[in-house]
Simulated assay, not measured.
Amino acid sequence: MIITRTPFRISFFGGGTDYPAWYLEHGGLVLATTIDKYCYITCRHLPPFFEHKHRIVYSHIENVREIAEIQHPAVRAVLDCLKVEDGLEIHHDGDLPARSGLGSSSSFTVGLLHAICALRGQYVSKDELASQAIYVEQKVIRENVGSQDQISAAFGGLNRIEFRQNDSFDVAPVITAPDRLADLQGHLMLFFTGVSRIASEVAKAKIDNLKNRVVELKAMHAMVDEAIAVLQDRQTPITAFGELLDRSWQLKRSLSDRVSTPEIDALYSAAREAGATGGKIIGAGGGGFLLLFVRPEYQARVRERLHGLVHVPFKFENSGSRVVLYQPNGL
């Protein structure tokens, strides 16, 4: 039996420039971190004593004879791509809701790839794990997704992720003083709006509009290094990071009329009135989690103003996808 633990991520800046339709022409750049909320995949060899060959347990339970019968698109695609022949039992558990903007779908794909490779006794590098997940989601399932989520899930940590026009990527950990990083974390608040959505559908509207948002996307690209400079310069107030988040959110909202909603705009305005410096909806938009940058002395006031939302405390994490239980029994 294998259990993998794969983190969810928060993307700060550059989201939208990680779509192949954009970066293959212009290049892309993202600043993102993983957090201590995880997707767990349990995978084991299924003994041949049942009518079904594969058992997949998530929000539904599937008992099937053939891979082609599997309804879960990522499970079906991964098992097919890895040419799995023997029966498997796969269980999924997550710390946070799916379809909420924290890269949960990619964490699932990365975690499942990692689990099956580990069950086979195969080592897979972080780079290979990310690349395989990108291939599965973009080429096999053909979802309208970017390329940052899979990389963050595989590598872990706070990273500057560059996407090159030749379809390669580079992951550079952001080096900053531990107390500066702790200061950033202490200013961040995460709230669940209660709205789940299909990220691929929201993303498609943005992708279709990329050619009309060149100025905005290039400005969002530039904010990545501007934000890193804030983190690395102790003379710059950390609140400058929050101000950048606000500027970035205004640009992100312009990418598509599906990124925000009147309800999200009202929540964001309420948070700002209560003391938030800036923030954004995490992920493609349309719902999910609202990230806010709030000075510590205003955080109680913001929680009270957004009392109808679930506040989710979190910490940064650096491990990326990991095998947390390894009991090989063959595949």
Rank of each mutant, 00 (worst) to 15 (best):
C117V: 00
L181Q: 11
Y135H: 13
V171A: 05
P173Y: 10
K126D: 12
V84R: 10
P48D: 13
E85V: 12
K204S: 11
A115L: 10
K83C: 08
S59R: 12
I70C: 07
M223E: 11
D149N: 09
Q250D: 06
G156R: 10
S107C: 12
Y19I: 02
D127A: 15
R99W: 02
A68M: 03
K280S: 10
S319L: 14
E216N: 08
I161A: 05
I282Y: 01
A270H: 04
L46R: 12
Q327R: 15
A227D: 02
A74T: 13
G275I: 12
V294Y: 07
A205H: 15
V64S: 03
S105P: 03
D265M: 02
G308H: 13
G278C: 14
V30M: 01
K126P: 07
S104I: 05
P178C: 11
I67G: 07
D208E: 15
Q71A: 14
V171M: 06
D18E: 09
P48I: 02
Q122N: 10
F293C: 14
G320T: 10
S319P: 00
T33C: 11
G242A: 12
Q138T: 13
T277G: 07
N159H: 09
A172E: 11
S269P: 00
F50W: 10
L217Q: 03
I134A: 08
I198W: 01
F108Y: 14
H60C: 08
T42C: 11
L309Q: 08
E85A: 09
R99Q: 15
V302E: 07
I41H: 02
A205G: 13
A219I: 04
E25Y: 09
P73Y: 02
E297Y: 10
A74I: 14
